[in-house]
Design a binder for these strands. Sequence first.
DNA 1: AACCACGGCAACCGCTGTTGG
DNA 2: GCCAACAGCGGTTGCCGTGGT
Length: 261
Amino acid sequence: MGRAPCCDKANVKKGPWSPEEDKQLKEYIEKHGTGGNWITLPRKAGLRRCGKSCRLRWLNYLRPNLKLGDFSDDEDRVICSLFAAIGSRWSIIAAQLPGRTDNDIKNYWNTKLKKKLLGLPPSHRKPHHHQQQPLFFPSTLETTASFSSSAPGLEGIPISPYLLSYSTPASAFPLPQIPAHQIGGRISHQQSCSSDDGISTQICNGGREHLVLDNSLYGGLEIEKLLLGERSLGCNSEEIKAIVCPSSVYLDGKDGARRGY
DNA sequence: AACCACGGCAACCGCTGTTGG
DNA sequence: GCCAACAGCGGTTGCCGTGGT
């Protein structure tokens, strides 16, 4: 019981956007807004693009106030902390980083941050004598294998000290507070949330809430514990396994190296 | 210089949630 | 309550640039 395609696939252009298309879309939206309807927007704007494609392009690359360039250490910390807490909820994570889009963060995580976490050796392109230390991982510390999770189902799994460092006292680095209702399930349309998409979210950072995740999703993880100091990883075990078990991701040979972000 | 392998990232795909008739 | 339309999300794909051989 599939649903009707959002656009006539035979008649829409795919692939990279040209500067002309960007200009056309930008000018249209600046003049008329999105009108709350992405499906009809491309036709109105004179673009042969799928509405979803227009939305993605606008939110990720054309809208104002986008932050470009490298991620700061603070942004790294926020991303890692939240990933440890809630997993790959990129839109929620993006909401904590103004100007960043979830696609950005997702790509950054997949290509760089995850490797820093794991303390993986640099890519084959980099000279061996420039071995990179894991981010924020003092050289005097032990290797990742010296730490292991005590989280249920994760016993004995080696964990990067970097990941464990998320559970240092909150004073070490301020962590964003996320309303529980955003974590327990998908975000409702009433909250403008960041997305892939990247629309900025209004997150209430004031007032602390004791966050308990939906059992079905996160095994009842108490976020507050994670964020505020208890040495509890408390993450979805599969997610953590995926994070900390390079063997399953990176040692599967050629294809794994290519696709196993 | 040419080839190859890989990393990075933009964009697409398909699914789920929300809304309104 | 049901269903279609739409928005939003996260995973995946494919292209291109870069570095190594």
